[in-house]
Each structure stands twice: as C-alpha cells, then as structure tokens.
C-alpha cells in the first residue's frame, strides 16, 4: 500500500513535469524570441533532470544540471549574444517551409507511438528496482566502458581545439 501511494505521488509528479516539459519544448520551437527560446529550453532540461530523479538516476540528474543547464545553456546564450540576435521578437526565425515539419513529426510520432504502445503497453516499471548508485556507474566507466571513456577525452579535445580555430578571428 505504501508503495502504491508513493507511486501515485510519482505519477502526479511525472504528469506535472511532463506537461511543463512539452509546453517548454513547444515554445522552444515556436517562440519568436531567441532568448526566450533559450529560457524555455532551460525549463525542458530542468524537467528532464527531474524525470531522471523519478527514474532513480540521481547522478545523471546532477550531471544534467551541471553540464546542460550550467555549461551548455551558457554556451547558447553566448552564441546568441555573439551573433547579435535581437533581444526582442524577430520575424525571421522560421523557414518559409516550416509547415513541412508538422507532417514529418506527425508520421514519426505515429510510428514511434504504435511501436512503443504495442511493445510496452501497460507494462509497469518495477517499483522496487535495484537502484543504481554512483559507485556502480564509476565501476562501469572504469571497467567495461573504459575505452569509450578514453576516446571521449579525445573527442572533447578535438572539439575544443577545432572550435577554437574555427571561431577565432584571424
């Protein structure tokens, strides 16, 4: 019973956060103000972090807040400033063929929804699942996933060096 009540709370939490995230996402792709879009994106990303907590992934949630909301969003805002976007509303943000996106997204969603519902239907997430802790994640990173980790360091190095060369004035 206790577990069931807890799940009700989680379900309500999920619903509220999801609605916020969907609204935020829709605003990101529809708003006429670049800075607003960035702020709405913060809403979506925070919502995602909250969902991660619901999914018992607190380390990823923390990383999400640090990397995305902390670093990536700052990058976006810098990008917006450096390219001198107007702080107010702009008309010219959408393509003339923007409506093309609606059927594409619609068909895509139909395919995904059919597949997801038909395969997972009303399957319950395990309520007393084995919780994955930080040590276990670190064991994985420094165990079986060591090589991709090593590779990632080169990816980031390459991205930094290349980005500097491309972005600097010369």
């Amino acid at each position: 019973m206790i577990a069931a009540e807890l799940l009700v709370a989680q379900n309500i939490g999920f619903a509220v956060i999801s609605v916020l995230m969907v609204i935020g996402a829709l605003r990101v792709v529809t708003t006429r103000n670049v800075v607003h879009a960035a702020l709405w994106l913060v809403v979506v990303l925070s919502g995602a972090a909250a969902q991660y907590v619901l999914l018992a992934a607190e380390f990823v949630a923390v990383t999400q807040v640090l990397v995305y909301i902390g670093a990536v969003m700052v990058l976006f805002l810098f990008g917006t400033m450096l390219t001198r976007a107007r702080i107010g509303t702009e008309r010219d943000l959408n393509n003339s063929y923007a409506r093309l996106g609606i059927p594409v997204a619609g068909v895509l969603f139909a395919a995904m929804a059919i597949a997801l519902v038909s395969s997972f239907g009303d399957e319950q997430l395990p309520s007393a699942a084995r919780v994955v802790g930080v040590p276990e994640i670190s064991d994985q990173i420094f165990g079986p996933y060591l090589l991709p980790f090593w590779a990632l360091s080169f990816v980031l190095l390459a991205a930094i060096i290349g980005a500097i060369v491309l972005a600097r004035k010369d």
Binding site: N95, Y97, P103, V104, L108, A110, A111, I114, A115
Partner: peptide
C-alpha cells in the same frame, strides 16, 4: 537548403519506420 535536407532525412526515416 539544410531544412529541406533535414526534412527529407526525417521524413524518409519516419515513413520507413511506419
């Protein structure tokens, strides 16, 4: 146009997936 290319990419993926 990048938008067209992207639309083509996603549309094909969507149709094939469906």
């Amino acid at each position: 146009r990048v938008g067209h290319y992207g639309a083509l990419l996603f549309a094909t993926a969507a149709v094939a997936a469906l």
